[in-house]
Simulated assay, not measured.
Amino acid sequence: MRAIVIEETGGPEVLRPSEVPDPVPGPGEVLIDIEARGVNFIDIYQRGGLYDVPLPFVPGMEAAGVITAVGEGVEDLSVGQRAGWAMAPGAYADRAVVKAALVVPVPDAVTSEQAAALLLQGMTAHYLTHSVHPVAEGETVLVHAAAGGTGLLLVRLAKELGARVIGTVSSEEKERIAREAGADEIIRYTETPVAEAVRDLTGGEGVAAVYDGVGRDTFDASLASLRPRGVLALFGQSSGPVEPVDPQRLNGAGSVYLTRPSLAHFVADRRELLWRAGDLFSLVGGGRLDPRIGGRYPLAEAGAAQADLASRRTTGKLVLV
């Protein structure tokens, strides 16, 4: 079968197509014929060596397709069933063996592209808005990179919960896309200081939560945008890691909370995993959520997809098909 195999860390050029043996599921595992794969910043971090992974390595942490074989002991998944997963490697291939505990059934109302575009970023948006800071009706939250894959899902889920959403974007086109997703207010961070604009939009109070997947470039503005006892959820670092923080800054900002969460800790329990995925699939099936596909690439062009994502010029979700 085809697979993108990373032999050494580096730039997009290390993503080389190869022919490798078909995998075989062991006890507690399933084999999935992959139809669509999500492209995520974690793939870039692993490829470049920021996140340490054993080499050689088949990247890709999210995909959807059809189960073609099951290992011993697998009881709640079956051959022929449509399924997807997130937070397990091996998606940049024709087939992958995945632990059954990480695999979720995909209903007929959801396409494989939608599932691949939704699971990792969608469950990230879900745990951020339902668990890290459960959004309350009527409160105001700030979403950075609101036209990106995770940003659009954060906007949509926060609106589902009744929030007023302020989003940051870099261009007129991205503003249009974020507003279509439901953002109430938009700040062009290339033109306006973010924290100052947030204070203006909230009558000086600040926001209840900031969902920040950008990191170094936005951290100071995020902290300065919070209301007293607000929550800064720093869930990514697309612009680079944040420098060490003096805890006294949290006091000075109004006894605010800073957390650096990760999806793996919010889907470690299978019941929680199925709850988050099921919520998202129900929204898609009901026509209330449609993950925006910002670009489709052949598997062999994984390097181009990652380069485009890293450029931060894309919108929505990039998928390998």
Rank of each mutant, 00 (worst) to 15 (best):
Ile4Phe: 03
Ile6His: 02
Ile6Cys: 04
Thr9Val: 15
Gly11Glu: 06
Glu13Gly: 09
Leu15Met: 05
Pro17Glu: 10
Pro17Trp: 07
Pro17Cys: 13
Val20Ser: 01
Asp22Gly: 15
Asp22Ser: 15
Asp22Arg: 15
Val24Thr: 14
Val24Phe: 07
Pro25Lys: 13
Val30Cys: 13
Val30Leu: 13
Leu31Thr: 15
Asp33Trp: 05
Ile34Pro: 09
Ile34Glu: 09
Val39Pro: 11
Ile42Pro: 07
Arg47Met: 06
Gly48Lys: 15
Leu50Val: 13
Val53Thr: 04
Leu55Asp: 14
Val66Ala: 04
Val70Ser: 12
Gly73Ala: 14
Val74Trp: 14
Val74Tyr: 12
Pro89Leu: 07
Tyr92Val: 06
Ala93Phe: 08
Arg95Ser: 13
Val97Thr: 15
Val97Tyr: 07
Val106Asn: 09
Ala109Cys: 02
Val110Ser: 09
Thr111Ile: 05
Gln114Pro: 05
Leu119Arg: 02
Leu120Phe: 12
Thr124Gln: 11
Ser131Gly: 04
Val132Pro: 07
Ala136Asn: 11
Gly138Asn: 01
His144Gln: 01
Val155Tyr: 05
Arg156Lys: 13
Glu160Leu: 10
Glu160Ser: 04
Gly162Asn: 01
Ala163Asp: 02
Arg164Tyr: 03
Ile166Glu: 01
Ser171Met: 01
Ser171Ala: 00
Glu180Met: 06
Gly182Glu: 07
Gly182Val: 10
Glu185Trp: 02
Ile186Pro: 04
Glu191Lys: 11
Pro193His: 12
Pro193Glu: 14
Val194Phe: 10
Val194Tyr: 08
Ala197Arg: 14
Gly206Ala: 08
Tyr211Gln: 09
Val214Cys: 03
Val214Lys: 06
Arg216Ala: 15
Thr218Trp: 06
Asp220Ser: 12
Arg229Pro: 00
Leu232Arg: 05
Phe235Leu: 13
Phe235Met: 13
Ser238Gln: 10
Asp269Tyr: 05
Asp269Asn: 09
Glu272Arg: 15
Arg276Gln: 15
Gly286Met: 08
Arg292Asn: 09
Gly294Lys: 13
Ala302Glu: 06
Ala305Met: 10
Arg313Leu: 00
Val321Met: 11
